[in-house]
């Protein structure tokens, strides 16, 4: 709890995250680079799918990230609503376009993979449909942020929406699963251990780690950018009305 509030200070966050950022970036480059090498050159071709199986190394990690980012966004929204943690707002806001991007990559790479293996770009299957709905939820969340002029109110409204979405995602997923299915079930995170060969599992996990580090790195950059944008906004307000609200992240004079 106290550690959480220590990082509520934007200036401290900028200091700590700037120190972490190069390491995270290096790890992202290392993991994605080696993952791509193992995935594209030194992993076996599938006996049925030939080389198209290599789409998996982009498709599966981005699909994981699409869910992971939404969970993170919902968690940050809950923290911002309960403890009014200023950085949680920014983290949730900064996550949304990233999550939407991962979801879009999962959808597009899935379509490119579906064409050679299933013979069609798109089917109205449970997995595909629920990921598409997740994409719409991200878009709604981003649109709600844009709709308010006052960032404080936008943050609260968006946090409520993210939590409503978090309650609904399992329901939507369950209803869609029940409705129609063609996509294969999970084959890595199962109780009986992964059903995928180790030579494919290693590049897959490397790519997943790399995507996560990439997400963290861009998230840090976006939060820092947002802090600067708010400072500029507050300084502009101060110029017009000297007795305006205190500057975000700047100690009161």
């Amino acid at each position: 709890m106290t550690t959480m509030h220590r990082f509520a200070n934007p200036a401290r966050f900028v200091r700590v995250s700037s120190a972490v950022l190069p390491w995270v970036t290096a790890l992202a480059v290392l993991c994605i680079g080696s993952g791509l090498y193992f995935g594209l050159f030194s992993s076996p071709v599938d006996y049925q799918q030939r080389d198209t199986v290599r789409i998996m190394y982009v498709h599966v990690p981005s699909a994981w990230m699409s869910m992971f980012v939404y969970s993170g966004m919902a968690l940050a929204s809950a923290i911002s609503l309960v403890w009014k943690h200023p950085l949680a707002d920014l983290a949730a806001k900064a996550s949304a376009p990233l999550g939407a991007g991962f979801t879009l990559v999962a959808l597009v790479s899935g379509a490119l993979w579906g064409q050679p293996t299933w013979g069609t770009w798109w089917v109205w299957d449970a997995r595909l449909t629920s990921v598409l709905i997740l994409f719409f939820l991200y878009l709604g969340y981003i649109a709600l942020w844009e709709a308010f002029d006052d960032p404080q109110r936008a943050a609260k409204a968006a946090a409520i929406l993210a939590l409503v979405g978090a309650v609904n995602i399992p329901i939507i997923k369950f209803s869609v699963d029940w409705w129609n299915t063609l996509h294969q079930p999970a084959s890595v995170m199962t109780l009986s251990g992964p059903s995928i060969h180790i030579s494919m599992l290693i590049p897959l996990l490397l790519m997943a780690l790399g995507f996560t580090f990439y997400y963290v790195a861009v998230l840090i950059l976006r939060i820092q950018r947002e802090i600067v944008a708010r400072k500029i906004r507050a300084l502009r307000l101060m110029q017009t009305e000297p007795a305006a609200t205190p500057v975000f992240g700047v100690p009161a004079q």
């Binding site: 649109a143 709600l144 209803s175």
Partner: peptide
């Protein structure tokens, strides 16, 4: 959520329709 927003109609549909899907199914 959209009560204070000018021309919130399109936004409202973007927010609400994905949540309506289970009822539809």
């Amino acid at each position: 959520l959209t009560v204070g927003i000018r021309r919130g109609g399109v936004l409202l549909s973007l927010l609400v329709l994905p949540l309506y899907i289970p009822v539809l199914i």
